[in-house]
Design a protein around this nucleic acid. Structure first.
Lengths: 293, 293
DNA sequence: TCATTTCTCTGACCATAGTCAGAGATTATC
DNA sequence: GATAATCTCTGACTATGGTCAGAGAAATGA
Protein backbone atom coordinates (compact mmCIF):
# COMPACT_ATOMS: atom_id res chain seq x y z
CA UNK A 1 0.00 0.00 0.00
CA UNK A 2 1.43 3.38 -0.98
CA UNK A 3 1.64 6.32 1.40
CA UNK A 4 -1.27 8.02 -0.40
CA UNK A 5 -3.46 4.98 -0.03
CA UNK A 6 -2.60 4.87 3.66
CA UNK A 7 -3.61 8.47 4.30
CA UNK A 8 -6.70 7.97 2.14
CA UNK A 9 -7.70 5.05 4.38
CA UNK A 10 -7.21 7.14 7.50
CA UNK A 11 -9.20 10.04 6.05
CA UNK A 12 -12.00 7.82 4.85
CA UNK A 13 -12.29 6.22 8.28
CA UNK A 14 -12.20 9.61 9.96
CA UNK A 15 -15.02 10.99 7.89
CA UNK A 16 -17.27 8.00 8.40
CA UNK A 17 -16.47 7.56 12.07
CA UNK A 18 -16.65 11.12 13.31
CA UNK A 19 -19.87 11.66 11.41
CA UNK A 20 -21.48 8.62 12.98
CA UNK A 21 -20.06 9.06 16.46
CA UNK A 22 -20.91 12.76 16.38
CA UNK A 23 -24.54 11.82 15.80
CA UNK A 24 -24.42 9.49 18.78
CA UNK A 25 -22.92 12.20 21.03
CA UNK A 26 -26.27 13.96 20.86
CA UNK A 27 -27.61 11.15 23.03
CA UNK A 28 -26.10 13.01 25.98
CA UNK A 29 -28.14 16.08 25.20
CA UNK A 30 -31.35 16.63 27.02
CA UNK A 31 -29.89 15.30 30.26
CA UNK A 32 -29.90 18.81 31.65
CA UNK A 33 -26.14 19.22 31.44
CA UNK A 34 -24.03 20.76 28.67
CA UNK A 35 -21.43 18.48 27.10
CA UNK A 36 -18.29 19.82 28.82
CA UNK A 37 -20.04 19.43 32.17
CA UNK A 38 -20.76 15.82 31.25
CA UNK A 39 -17.14 15.20 30.31
CA UNK A 40 -16.16 16.71 33.64
CA UNK A 41 -18.61 14.46 35.49
CA UNK A 42 -17.08 11.43 33.76
CA UNK A 43 -13.61 12.54 34.72
CA UNK A 44 -14.38 13.25 38.36
CA UNK A 45 -16.40 10.05 38.63
CA UNK A 46 -13.68 7.82 37.28
CA UNK A 47 -10.86 9.53 39.19
CA UNK A 48 -11.45 12.45 41.58
CA UNK A 49 -8.68 15.05 41.78
CA UNK A 50 -7.69 18.60 42.42
CA UNK A 51 -8.94 21.37 40.19
CA UNK A 52 -5.44 21.72 38.79
CA UNK A 53 -5.36 18.05 38.00
CA UNK A 54 -8.71 18.07 36.23
CA UNK A 55 -7.66 21.12 34.26
CA UNK A 56 -4.59 19.29 32.99
CA UNK A 57 -6.49 16.11 32.22
CA UNK A 58 -9.26 17.83 30.30
CA UNK A 59 -7.21 20.66 28.86
CA UNK A 60 -9.62 23.36 30.04
CA UNK A 61 -9.16 27.01 30.90
CA UNK A 62 -8.95 27.59 34.65
CA UNK A 63 -11.80 30.11 34.73
CA UNK A 64 -13.96 27.91 32.57
CA UNK A 65 -13.37 24.82 34.67
CA UNK A 66 -14.16 26.78 37.81
CA UNK A 67 -17.46 27.84 36.33
CA UNK A 68 -18.30 24.27 35.31
CA UNK A 69 -17.56 23.12 38.85
CA UNK A 70 -19.86 25.83 40.29
CA UNK A 71 -22.55 24.58 37.95
CA UNK A 72 -22.18 20.97 39.06
CA UNK A 73 -21.95 22.07 42.68
CA UNK A 74 -25.16 24.06 42.50
CA UNK A 75 -26.86 21.04 40.91
CA UNK A 76 -25.72 19.04 43.96
CA UNK A 77 -23.65 16.66 41.86
CA UNK A 78 -20.14 17.40 43.14
CA UNK A 79 -18.52 18.89 46.22
CA UNK A 80 -15.32 20.87 46.07
CA UNK A 81 -13.29 20.99 49.30
CA UNK A 82 -9.79 22.25 50.13
CA UNK A 83 -6.99 19.71 49.81
CA UNK A 84 -5.63 19.14 53.35
CA UNK A 85 -2.11 18.71 51.96
CA UNK A 86 -2.06 22.13 50.27
CA UNK A 87 -4.96 24.38 51.07
CA UNK A 88 -4.58 26.45 47.92
CA UNK A 89 -5.74 23.41 46.04
CA UNK A 90 -9.30 22.13 46.05
CA UNK A 91 -10.43 18.60 45.45
CA UNK A 92 -13.61 17.73 43.54
CA UNK A 93 -15.58 14.57 44.34
CA UNK A 94 -19.02 13.28 43.38
CA UNK A 95 -21.88 13.49 45.88
CA UNK A 96 -24.31 10.60 46.28
CA UNK A 97 -26.61 12.20 43.75
CA UNK A 98 -23.63 12.84 41.53
CA UNK A 99 -22.74 9.16 41.65
CA UNK A 100 -26.28 8.24 40.63
CA UNK A 101 -26.06 10.65 37.73
CA UNK A 102 -22.67 9.22 36.81
CA UNK A 103 -24.18 5.76 36.65
CA UNK A 104 -26.86 7.07 34.30
CA UNK A 105 -24.19 8.62 32.09
CA UNK A 106 -22.25 5.37 32.08
CA UNK A 107 -25.37 3.50 31.06
CA UNK A 108 -26.00 6.00 28.29
CA UNK A 109 -22.44 5.67 27.04
CA UNK A 110 -22.68 1.88 27.17
CA UNK A 111 -25.87 2.01 25.17
CA UNK A 112 -24.22 4.29 22.66
CA UNK A 113 -21.42 1.79 22.13
CA UNK A 114 -24.01 -0.93 21.73
CA UNK A 115 -25.78 0.87 18.88
CA UNK A 116 -22.56 0.40 16.96
CA UNK A 117 -22.27 -3.28 17.77
CA UNK A 118 -25.81 -4.56 17.99
CA UNK A 119 -26.76 -4.44 14.32
CA UNK A 120 -23.81 -6.66 13.42
CA UNK A 121 -23.78 -10.42 13.27
CA UNK A 122 -21.65 -12.12 15.96
CA UNK A 123 -18.85 -12.76 13.48
CA UNK A 124 -18.76 -9.12 12.42
CA UNK A 125 -18.82 -7.99 16.05
CA UNK A 126 -15.71 -9.99 16.76
CA UNK A 127 -14.04 -8.56 13.69
CA UNK A 128 -15.01 -4.98 14.56
CA UNK A 129 -13.81 -5.13 18.13
CA UNK A 130 -10.58 -6.81 17.07
CA UNK A 131 -9.99 -4.08 14.48
CA UNK A 132 -10.78 -1.29 16.95
CA UNK A 133 -8.52 -2.80 19.62
CA UNK A 134 -5.70 -3.01 17.10
CA UNK A 135 -6.32 0.52 15.84
CA UNK A 136 -6.53 1.78 19.42
CA UNK A 137 -3.12 0.39 20.32
CA UNK A 138 -1.50 1.77 17.19
CA UNK A 139 -3.18 5.18 17.36
CA UNK A 140 -2.06 5.56 20.94
CA UNK A 141 1.43 4.46 19.96
CA UNK A 142 1.51 6.93 17.07
CA UNK A 143 0.57 9.83 19.33
CA UNK A 144 3.02 9.01 22.08
CA UNK A 145 5.59 11.74 22.60
CA UNK A 146 9.23 10.72 22.90
CA UNK A 147 11.11 13.22 25.03
CA UNK A 148 14.68 13.34 26.28
CA UNK A 149 14.43 13.43 30.05
CA UNK A 150 16.99 13.65 32.83
CA UNK A 151 17.14 10.24 34.58
CA UNK A 152 16.70 12.08 37.88
CA UNK A 153 13.27 13.45 36.90
CA UNK A 154 10.31 11.71 38.55
CA UNK A 155 8.92 10.64 35.16
CA UNK A 156 12.16 8.93 34.21
CA UNK A 157 12.54 7.32 37.63
CA UNK A 158 9.00 5.95 37.44
CA UNK A 159 9.76 4.36 34.08
CA UNK A 160 13.05 2.88 35.26
CA UNK A 161 11.41 1.55 38.41
CA UNK A 162 8.90 -0.33 36.28
CA UNK A 163 11.79 -1.65 34.20
CA UNK A 164 13.57 -2.85 37.35
CA UNK A 165 10.39 -4.48 38.66
CA UNK A 166 9.91 -6.41 35.48
CA UNK A 167 13.54 -7.50 35.24
CA UNK A 168 13.39 -8.64 38.85
CA UNK A 169 10.21 -10.60 38.19
CA UNK A 170 11.53 -12.21 35.03
CA UNK A 171 15.08 -13.17 35.96
CA UNK A 172 15.75 -11.96 39.48
CA UNK A 173 17.63 -8.81 38.50
CA UNK A 174 19.06 -6.93 41.48
CA UNK A 175 18.86 -3.17 40.89
CA UNK A 176 20.56 -1.87 44.04
CA UNK A 177 22.79 1.07 43.24
CA UNK A 178 21.88 1.01 39.55
CA UNK A 179 19.84 4.23 39.60
CA UNK A 180 22.81 6.23 40.85
CA UNK A 181 24.95 4.98 37.98
CA UNK A 182 22.13 5.86 35.57
CA UNK A 183 21.89 9.42 36.77
CA UNK A 184 25.57 9.89 36.00
CA UNK A 185 25.87 7.98 32.70
CA UNK A 186 22.55 8.29 30.87
CA UNK A 187 22.66 12.03 30.34
CA UNK A 188 24.50 14.60 28.29
CA UNK A 189 27.13 15.15 27.17
CA UNK A 190 27.96 11.42 26.67
CA UNK A 191 24.55 9.81 27.11
CA UNK A 192 20.80 10.30 26.85
CA UNK A 193 17.59 9.02 28.33
CA UNK A 194 14.28 8.89 26.45
CA UNK A 195 10.85 8.51 28.01
CA UNK A 196 7.71 7.86 25.94
CA UNK A 197 4.65 9.37 27.59
CA UNK A 198 0.98 8.84 26.80
CA UNK A 199 -1.84 10.52 28.72
CA UNK A 200 0.68 11.58 31.34
CA UNK A 201 1.92 8.02 32.01
CA UNK A 202 5.36 6.71 31.06
CA UNK A 203 4.86 3.78 28.69
CA UNK A 204 8.36 3.10 27.40
CA UNK A 205 11.93 4.23 27.94
CA UNK A 206 15.48 3.67 26.85
CA UNK A 207 18.95 5.03 27.63
CA UNK A 208 22.25 5.52 25.87
CA UNK A 209 25.69 5.69 27.46
CA UNK A 210 29.25 5.80 26.17
CA UNK A 211 31.41 2.83 27.18
CA UNK A 212 34.51 3.54 25.08
CA UNK A 213 35.52 6.11 22.47
CA UNK A 214 33.19 5.63 19.48
CA UNK A 215 31.19 2.90 21.24
CA UNK A 216 27.79 3.46 22.81
CA UNK A 217 25.64 1.09 24.81
CA UNK A 218 21.85 0.84 24.93
CA UNK A 219 20.45 0.49 28.47
CA UNK A 220 17.08 0.33 30.25
CA UNK A 221 15.02 -0.54 27.16
CA UNK A 222 11.50 -1.05 28.45
CA UNK A 223 7.97 -1.05 26.98
CA UNK A 224 4.86 -1.33 29.14
CA UNK A 225 3.29 -4.76 28.73
CA UNK A 226 -0.04 -3.48 27.37
CA UNK A 227 1.83 -1.42 24.78
CA UNK A 228 3.86 -4.16 23.20
CA UNK A 229 3.50 -4.89 19.52
CA UNK A 230 3.01 -1.26 18.59
CA UNK A 231 6.53 -0.52 17.49
CA UNK A 232 7.31 1.66 20.50
CA UNK A 233 10.51 -0.22 21.31
CA UNK A 234 11.76 0.25 17.75
CA UNK A 235 10.99 3.95 17.88
CA UNK A 236 12.86 4.48 21.12
CA UNK A 237 15.77 2.45 19.72
CA UNK A 238 15.88 4.48 16.49
CA UNK A 239 15.83 7.67 18.51
CA UNK A 240 18.76 6.54 20.61
CA UNK A 241 20.68 5.41 17.52
CA UNK A 242 20.31 8.89 16.03
CA UNK A 243 21.65 10.42 19.21
CA UNK A 244 24.55 7.96 19.26
CA UNK A 245 25.39 8.88 15.67
CA UNK A 246 25.26 12.56 16.63
CA UNK A 247 27.76 11.83 19.40
CA UNK A 248 30.10 10.39 16.75
CA UNK A 249 29.76 6.75 17.79
CA UNK A 250 30.44 4.11 15.13
CA UNK A 251 29.12 1.12 17.10
CA UNK A 252 26.26 0.41 19.46
CA UNK A 253 26.22 -2.50 21.88
CA UNK A 254 23.71 -3.91 24.29
CA UNK A 255 23.39 -6.80 26.69
CA UNK A 256 20.20 -8.57 27.64
CA UNK A 257 18.84 -11.69 29.30
CA UNK A 258 17.77 -14.76 27.36
CA UNK A 259 14.33 -14.72 29.02
CA UNK A 260 13.46 -11.46 27.23
CA UNK A 261 12.49 -13.09 23.95
CA UNK A 262 10.37 -10.20 22.58
CA UNK A 263 13.20 -7.74 23.16
CA UNK A 264 15.73 -10.02 21.49
CA UNK A 265 13.46 -10.42 18.46
CA UNK A 266 13.13 -6.65 18.28
CA UNK A 267 16.91 -6.12 18.41
CA UNK A 268 17.41 -8.65 15.64
CA UNK A 269 14.74 -6.97 13.47
CA UNK A 270 16.54 -3.69 14.07
CA UNK A 271 19.80 -5.07 12.67
CA UNK A 272 21.64 -6.05 15.84
CA UNK A 273 23.85 -9.13 15.63
CA UNK A 274 24.99 -11.46 18.36
CA UNK A 275 28.52 -10.91 19.62
CA UNK A 276 30.65 -12.41 22.40
CA UNK A 277 30.26 -11.25 25.99
CA UNK A 278 31.79 -7.77 26.28
CA UNK A 279 31.22 -7.08 30.00
CA UNK A 280 30.91 -8.92 33.30
CA UNK A 281 27.23 -8.11 33.99
CA UNK A 282 26.11 -11.26 35.87
CA UNK A 283 22.47 -10.85 34.71
CA UNK A 284 23.34 -10.60 31.02
CA UNK A 285 23.37 -13.79 28.93
CA UNK A 286 23.06 -12.43 25.37
CA UNK A 287 25.13 -9.68 23.72
CA UNK A 288 24.45 -7.67 20.56
CA UNK A 289 26.15 -5.09 18.43
CA UNK A 290 25.29 -2.94 15.46
CA UNK A 291 27.46 -0.62 13.35
CA UNK A 292 26.18 2.93 12.86
CA UNK A 293 26.73 4.49 9.45
CA UNK B 1 -15.25 -11.83 24.12
CA UNK B 2 -18.28 -10.94 26.18
CA UNK B 3 -20.71 -8.20 25.22
CA UNK B 4 -19.31 -5.97 27.98
CA UNK B 5 -15.76 -6.42 26.76
CA UNK B 6 -16.93 -5.52 23.28
CA UNK B 7 -18.57 -2.26 24.33
CA UNK B 8 -15.57 -1.50 26.54
CA UNK B 9 -13.32 -1.85 23.50
CA UNK B 10 -15.52 0.48 21.48
CA UNK B 11 -15.61 3.04 24.28
CA UNK B 12 -11.91 2.88 24.89
CA UNK B 13 -11.23 3.42 21.21
CA UNK B 14 -13.72 6.28 21.07
CA UNK B 15 -12.11 8.12 23.92
CA UNK B 16 -8.59 7.79 22.60
CA UNK B 17 -9.51 8.51 19.02
CA UNK B 18 -11.84 11.47 19.40
CA UNK B 19 -9.43 13.07 21.84
CA UNK B 20 -6.53 12.76 19.43
CA UNK B 21 -8.45 13.56 16.27
CA UNK B 22 -10.15 16.49 17.99
CA UNK B 23 -6.73 17.95 18.69
CA UNK B 24 -5.82 17.56 15.05
CA UNK B 25 -9.03 19.28 13.92
CA UNK B 26 -7.63 22.48 15.32
CA UNK B 27 -5.16 22.44 12.46
CA UNK B 28 -7.97 23.87 10.31
CA UNK B 29 -8.32 26.82 12.60
CA UNK B 30 -6.55 30.00 11.73
CA UNK B 31 -7.28 29.55 8.03
CA UNK B 32 -9.76 32.39 8.21
CA UNK B 33 -12.80 30.13 7.96
CA UNK B 34 -14.93 28.62 10.72
CA UNK B 35 -15.16 24.84 10.79
CA UNK B 36 -18.63 24.38 9.29
CA UNK B 37 -17.62 26.64 6.39
CA UNK B 38 -14.60 24.40 5.86
CA UNK B 39 -16.77 21.29 5.86
CA UNK B 40 -19.01 23.01 3.33
CA UNK B 41 -16.01 23.88 1.15
CA UNK B 42 -14.92 20.23 1.22
CA UNK B 43 -18.39 19.11 0.23
CA UNK B 44 -18.84 21.57 -2.63
CA UNK B 45 -15.32 20.92 -3.84
CA UNK B 46 -15.70 17.18 -3.98
CA UNK B 47 -19.21 17.25 -5.46
CA UNK B 48 -21.02 20.52 -6.32
CA UNK B 49 -24.77 20.48 -5.90
CA UNK B 50 -27.92 22.41 -5.18
CA UNK B 51 -28.43 24.08 -1.84
CA UNK B 52 -31.04 21.49 -0.99
CA UNK B 53 -28.63 18.74 -1.82
CA UNK B 54 -25.85 20.16 0.34
CA UNK B 55 -28.30 20.63 3.18
CA UNK B 56 -29.20 16.95 3.06
CA UNK B 57 -25.62 15.80 2.77
CA UNK B 58 -24.35 17.90 5.64
CA UNK B 59 -27.50 17.81 7.75
CA UNK B 60 -27.61 21.58 8.19
CA UNK B 61 -30.46 24.00 8.84
CA UNK B 62 -31.55 25.80 5.71
CA UNK B 63 -31.04 29.29 7.13
CA UNK B 64 -27.66 28.35 8.51
CA UNK B 65 -26.46 26.85 5.25
CA UNK B 66 -27.63 29.93 3.41
CA UNK B 67 -25.60 32.12 5.70
CA UNK B 68 -22.52 29.93 5.29
CA UNK B 69 -22.88 30.18 1.51
CA UNK B 70 -23.12 33.99 1.71
CA UNK B 71 -19.94 33.95 3.73
CA UNK B 72 -18.09 31.84 1.21
CA UNK B 73 -19.54 33.91 -1.63
CA UNK B 74 -18.38 37.18 -0.12
CA UNK B 75 -14.93 35.66 0.35
CA UNK B 76 -14.97 34.91 -3.38
CA UNK B 77 -14.64 31.17 -2.82
CA UNK B 78 -17.94 29.92 -4.26
CA UNK B 79 -20.59 31.13 -6.68
CA UNK B 80 -24.25 30.28 -6.25
CA UNK B 81 -26.34 30.38 -9.45
CA UNK B 82 -29.91 29.30 -10.26
CA UNK B 83 -30.30 25.73 -11.50
CA UNK B 84 -31.51 25.98 -15.14
CA UNK B 85 -33.65 22.86 -14.68
CA UNK B 86 -35.61 24.33 -11.76
CA UNK B 87 -34.97 27.97 -11.06
CA UNK B 88 -36.12 27.76 -7.45
CA UNK B 89 -33.00 25.73 -6.81
CA UNK B 90 -29.53 27.22 -6.73
CA UNK B 91 -26.31 25.41 -7.45
CA UNK B 92 -23.10 26.11 -5.57
CA UNK B 93 -19.71 25.67 -7.24
CA UNK B 94 -16.18 26.66 -6.33
CA UNK B 95 -14.58 29.67 -8.03
CA UNK B 96 -10.96 29.54 -9.18
CA UNK B 97 -9.87 30.99 -5.87
CA UNK B 98 -12.17 28.57 -4.09
CA UNK B 99 -10.49 25.68 -5.88
CA UNK B 100 -7.08 26.94 -4.74
CA UNK B 101 -8.32 27.14 -1.20
CA UNK B 102 -9.80 23.67 -1.50
CA UNK B 103 -6.42 22.36 -2.53
CA UNK B 104 -4.89 23.95 0.56
CA UNK B 105 -7.53 22.33 2.72
CA UNK B 106 -6.91 18.98 1.09
CA UNK B 107 -3.20 19.34 1.75
CA UNK B 108 -3.89 20.22 5.35
CA UNK B 109 -6.16 17.22 5.76
CA UNK B 110 -3.58 14.97 4.12
CA UNK B 111 -0.94 16.27 6.50
CA UNK B 112 -3.24 15.64 9.42
CA UNK B 113 -3.67 12.00 8.40
CA UNK B 114 0.08 11.73 8.05
CA UNK B 115 0.72 12.88 11.63
CA UNK B 116 -1.09 9.72 12.65
CA UNK B 117 0.87 7.44 10.34
CA UNK B 118 4.33 8.95 10.14
CA UNK B 119 5.55 8.13 13.66
CA UNK B 120 4.88 4.43 13.11
CA UNK B 121 7.27 1.89 11.68
CA UNK B 122 6.32 0.53 8.22
CA UNK B 123 5.01 -2.68 9.76
CA UNK B 124 2.79 -0.80 12.19
CA UNK B 125 1.53 1.48 9.40
CA UNK B 126 0.36 -1.50 7.45
CA UNK B 127 -1.34 -2.90 10.54
CA UNK B 128 -3.01 0.41 11.40
CA UNK B 129 -4.39 1.02 7.93
CA UNK B 130 -5.60 -2.57 7.68
CA UNK B 131 -7.37 -2.23 11.04
CA UNK B 132 -8.93 1.10 10.09
CA UNK B 133 -10.10 -0.20 6.72
CA UNK B 134 -11.71 -3.18 8.45
CA UNK B 135 -13.28 -0.99 11.13
CA UNK B 136 -14.48 1.44 8.48
CA UNK B 137 -16.31 -1.26 6.55
CA UNK B 138 -17.92 -2.67 9.67
CA UNK B 139 -18.86 0.68 11.19
CA UNK B 140 -20.49 1.71 7.94
CA UNK B 141 -22.29 -1.62 7.80
CA UNK B 142 -23.47 -1.25 11.38
CA UNK B 143 -24.96 2.17 10.70
CA UNK B 144 -26.70 1.21 7.47
CA UNK B 145 -30.46 1.60 7.70
CA UNK B 146 -32.62 -1.25 6.40
CA UNK B 147 -35.94 0.09 5.18
CA UNK B 148 -38.89 -1.57 3.50
CA UNK B 149 -39.33 0.22 0.20
CA UNK B 150 -41.83 -0.07 -2.64
CA UNK B 151 -40.01 -1.68 -5.61
CA UNK B 152 -41.34 1.15 -7.77
CA UNK B 153 -39.47 3.81 -5.75
CA UNK B 154 -36.38 5.24 -7.45
CA UNK B 155 -34.14 4.01 -4.61
CA UNK B 156 -35.36 0.43 -4.99
CA UNK B 157 -35.12 0.57 -8.79
CA UNK B 158 -31.56 1.84 -8.57
CA UNK B 159 -30.61 -1.07 -6.32
CA UNK B 160 -32.34 -3.64 -8.55
CA UNK B 161 -30.71 -2.17 -11.63
CA UNK B 162 -27.30 -2.69 -10.06
CA UNK B 163 -28.34 -6.26 -9.24
CA UNK B 164 -29.38 -6.86 -12.83
CA UNK B 165 -26.15 -5.37 -14.14
CA UNK B 166 -24.06 -7.65 -12.00
CA UNK B 167 -26.11 -10.77 -12.84
CA UNK B 168 -25.79 -9.91 -16.53
CA UNK B 169 -22.04 -9.47 -16.18
CA UNK B 170 -21.56 -12.68 -14.24
CA UNK B 171 -23.79 -15.15 -16.07
CA UNK B 172 -25.57 -13.32 -18.86
CA UNK B 173 -28.83 -12.82 -17.00
CA UNK B 174 -31.56 -11.24 -19.15
CA UNK B 175 -33.68 -8.90 -17.06
CA UNK B 176 -36.28 -7.82 -19.64
CA UNK B 177 -39.70 -7.66 -18.10
CA UNK B 178 -38.45 -8.63 -14.65
CA UNK B 179 -38.97 -5.23 -13.04
CA UNK B 180 -42.68 -5.27 -13.86
CA UNK B 181 -43.08 -8.63 -12.13
CA UNK B 182 -41.15 -7.28 -9.14
CA UNK B 183 -43.42 -4.30 -8.73
CA UNK B 184 -46.40 -6.65 -8.46
CA UNK B 185 -44.93 -9.44 -6.33
CA UNK B 186 -42.34 -7.90 -3.99
CA UNK B 187 -44.71 -5.73 -2.04
CA UNK B 188 -47.47 -6.07 0.57
CA UNK B 189 -49.64 -7.85 1.33
CA UNK B 190 -47.79 -11.00 0.14
CA UNK B 191 -44.25 -9.74 -0.33
CA UNK B 192 -41.72 -7.17 0.72
CA UNK B 193 -38.68 -5.37 -0.58
CA UNK B 194 -35.82 -4.14 1.60
CA UNK B 195 -33.21 -1.57 0.64
CA UNK B 196 -30.11 -0.89 2.75
CA UNK B 197 -29.01 2.71 2.39
CA UNK B 198 -25.76 4.36 3.51
CA UNK B 199 -24.98 8.04 2.94
CA UNK B 200 -27.97 8.24 0.61
CA UNK B 201 -26.73 5.41 -1.65
CA UNK B 202 -28.36 1.97 -1.92
CA UNK B 203 -25.76 -0.61 -0.89
CA UNK B 204 -27.78 -3.80 -0.61
CA UNK B 205 -31.27 -5.09 -1.23
CA UNK B 206 -33.46 -8.16 -1.09
CA UNK B 207 -37.06 -9.14 -1.83
CA UNK B 208 -39.62 -11.62 -0.59
CA UNK B 209 -42.55 -13.00 -2.52
CA UNK B 210 -45.15 -15.72 -1.93
CA UNK B 211 -45.02 -18.60 -4.40
CA UNK B 212 -47.50 -20.97 -2.75
CA UNK B 213 -49.52 -21.01 0.48
CA UNK B 214 -47.01 -21.08 3.36
CA UNK B 215 -44.04 -20.89 1.01
CA UNK B 216 -42.06 -17.73 0.37
CA UNK B 217 -39.22 -17.08 -2.00
CA UNK B 218 -36.20 -14.81 -1.58
CA UNK B 219 -35.43 -12.70 -4.66
CA UNK B 220 -33.03 -9.94 -5.74
CA UNK B 221 -30.49 -10.48 -2.99
CA UNK B 222 -27.67 -8.07 -3.76
CA UNK B 223 -24.80 -6.45 -1.87
CA UNK B 224 -22.57 -3.76 -3.39
CA UNK B 225 -19.13 -5.20 -4.16
CA UNK B 226 -17.25 -2.82 -1.87
CA UNK B 227 -19.56 -3.73 0.99
CA UNK B 228 -19.13 -7.48 0.95
CA UNK B 229 -17.85 -9.25 4.02
CA UNK B 230 -19.63 -6.94 6.43
CA UNK B 231 -22.62 -9.17 7.11
CA UNK B 232 -25.03 -6.97 5.18
CA UNK B 233 -26.39 -9.87 3.15
CA UNK B 234 -27.11 -11.84 6.33
CA UNK B 235 -28.89 -8.87 7.85
CA UNK B 236 -31.12 -8.36 4.83
CA UNK B 237 -31.84 -12.09 4.77
CA UNK B 238 -32.74 -12.19 8.50
CA UNK B 239 -35.02 -9.23 8.01
CA UNK B 240 -36.84 -10.92 5.14
CA UNK B 241 -37.12 -14.16 7.12
CA UNK B 242 -38.84 -12.28 9.95
CA UNK B 243 -41.29 -10.80 7.50
CA UNK B 244 -41.94 -14.20 5.96
CA UNK B 245 -42.63 -15.62 9.42
CA UNK B 246 -45.00 -12.74 10.06
CA UNK B 247 -46.85 -13.63 6.87
CA UNK B 248 -47.29 -17.15 8.26
CA UNK B 249 -44.88 -18.88 5.91
CA UNK B 250 -43.34 -22.15 7.10
CA UNK B 251 -40.72 -22.46 4.36
CA UNK B 252 -38.45 -20.14 2.40
CA UNK B 253 -36.92 -21.03 -0.94
CA UNK B 254 -34.47 -19.36 -3.25
CA UNK B 255 -32.75 -20.05 -6.52
CA UNK B 256 -29.34 -18.80 -7.56
CA UNK B 257 -26.59 -19.31 -10.09
CA UNK B 258 -23.54 -21.44 -9.42
CA UNK B 259 -21.21 -18.55 -10.31
CA UNK B 260 -22.37 -16.62 -7.24
CA UNK B 261 -20.10 -18.44 -4.81
CA UNK B 262 -20.14 -15.77 -2.05
CA UNK B 263 -23.92 -15.71 -2.04
CA UNK B 264 -24.14 -19.50 -1.89
CA UNK B 265 -21.71 -19.59 1.06
CA UNK B 266 -23.84 -16.97 2.81
CA UNK B 267 -27.06 -18.96 2.27
CA UNK B 268 -25.41 -22.08 3.64
CA UNK B 269 -24.16 -20.23 6.72
CA UNK B 270 -27.68 -18.94 7.23
CA UNK B 271 -29.07 -22.50 7.38
CA UNK B 272 -30.31 -22.97 3.81
CA UNK B 273 -29.99 -26.47 2.36
CA UNK B 274 -29.76 -27.56 -1.24
CA UNK B 275 -32.99 -28.93 -2.74
CA UNK B 276 -34.06 -30.07 -6.21
CA UNK B 277 -35.04 -27.55 -8.88
CA UNK B 278 -38.46 -26.14 -8.00
CA UNK B 279 -39.00 -23.78 -10.95
CA UNK B 280 -38.06 -23.40 -14.62
CA UNK B 281 -35.90 -20.29 -14.27
CA UNK B 282 -33.32 -20.85 -17.04
CA UNK B 283 -30.66 -18.79 -15.23
CA UNK B 284 -30.93 -20.71 -11.95
CA UNK B 285 -28.62 -23.66 -11.38
CA UNK B 286 -28.73 -24.08 -7.59
CA UNK B 287 -31.80 -24.26 -5.34
CA UNK B 288 -32.10 -23.84 -1.57
CA UNK B 289 -34.72 -24.09 1.11
CA UNK B 290 -35.00 -23.41 4.81
CA UNK B 291 -37.83 -24.13 7.27
CA UNK B 292 -39.02 -21.17 9.39
CA UNK B 293 -39.92 -21.90 12.99
C1' DT C 1 -55.74 30.61 -13.81
C1' DC C 2 -55.48 30.33 -8.99
C1' DA C 3 -54.11 27.97 -4.93
C1' DT C 4 -50.61 25.17 -3.13
C1' DT C 5 -46.17 23.58 -2.64
C1' DT C 6 -41.21 23.91 -2.97
C1' DC C 7 -37.03 26.30 -2.42
C1' DT C 8 -33.85 29.73 -0.72
C1' DC C 9 -33.11 33.61 1.75
C1' DT C 10 -33.03 37.25 5.63
C1' DG C 11 -33.67 38.97 10.23
C1' DA C 12 -34.06 38.08 14.94
C1' DC C 13 -32.79 35.37 18.47
C1' DC C 14 -30.19 32.00 21.47
C1' DA C 15 -27.23 28.44 23.83
C1' DT C 16 -22.82 26.71 24.09
C1' DA C 17 -18.22 27.00 24.83
C1' DG C 18 -15.17 29.36 25.65
C1' DT C 19 -10.99 33.55 26.71
C1' DC C 20 -8.76 36.94 29.58
C1' DA C 21 -7.46 39.95 33.43
C1' DG C 22 -7.02 40.32 37.84
C1' DA C 23 -8.48 39.56 42.97
C1' DG C 24 -7.76 36.94 47.15
C1' DA C 25 -6.01 33.00 49.76
C1' DT C 26 -2.22 30.05 50.61
C1' DT C 27 2.39 28.29 50.26
C1' DA C 28 7.36 28.39 49.00
C1' DT C 29 11.69 30.92 48.85
C1' DC C 30 15.16 33.94 50.17
C1' DG D 1 9.50 38.03 57.96
C1' DA D 2 9.08 39.94 53.47
C1' DT D 3 8.53 38.71 48.70
C1' DA D 4 7.44 35.80 45.13
C1' DA D 5 4.98 32.12 43.29
C1' DT D 6 0.94 29.10 43.05
C1' DC D 7 -3.85 28.12 42.97
C1' DT D 8 -8.69 28.98 42.38
C1' DC D 9 -12.09 32.05 41.71
C1' DT D 10 -15.19 35.91 39.70
C1' DG D 11 -16.58 39.32 36.37
C1' DA D 12 -16.56 40.93 31.83
C1' DC D 13 -16.31 39.81 27.33
C1' DT D 14 -16.39 36.99 22.81
C1' DA D 15 -16.76 33.60 19.07
C1' DT D 16 -19.00 29.74 17.45
C1' DG D 17 -22.65 27.32 15.90
C1' DG D 18 -26.60 27.22 15.59
C1' DT D 19 -32.62 27.68 15.60
C1' DC D 20 -36.93 29.62 14.05
C1' DA D 21 -40.44 32.28 11.61
C1' DG D 22 -41.68 34.12 7.75
C1' DA D 23 -40.94 36.66 3.13
C1' DG D 24 -40.47 36.25 -1.80
C1' DA D 25 -39.64 33.74 -6.13
C1' DA D 26 -40.54 29.82 -8.87
C1' DA D 27 -42.84 25.52 -10.02
C1' DT D 28 -46.81 22.26 -9.70
C1' DG D 29 -51.58 20.62 -9.53
C1' DA D 30 -56.54 21.13 -10.08
Amino acid sequence: MTAEQQTATVRRFNRAYTQRIGALEDSFLGMGLPLPAIRLMFEIGSRPGTVRDLRARLGLDSGYLSRLLRRLESDGLVTVAPDPADRRRRVATLTGRGRERWNELEARSEERARTLIDPLTPRQRTRLTAALAEADLLVRAATVTLAETDPAEPEARAAVQRYFDEMHRRFGFDSSGEDIKDAAMLCPPDGAFIVAVSDGEPVACGGLQTIAPGIGEIKRMWVDETWRGAGLGSRVLRDLEKRAAALGHHTLRLDTNETLAEAIAMYERAGYQRVARYNDNPFATDFFERPLF
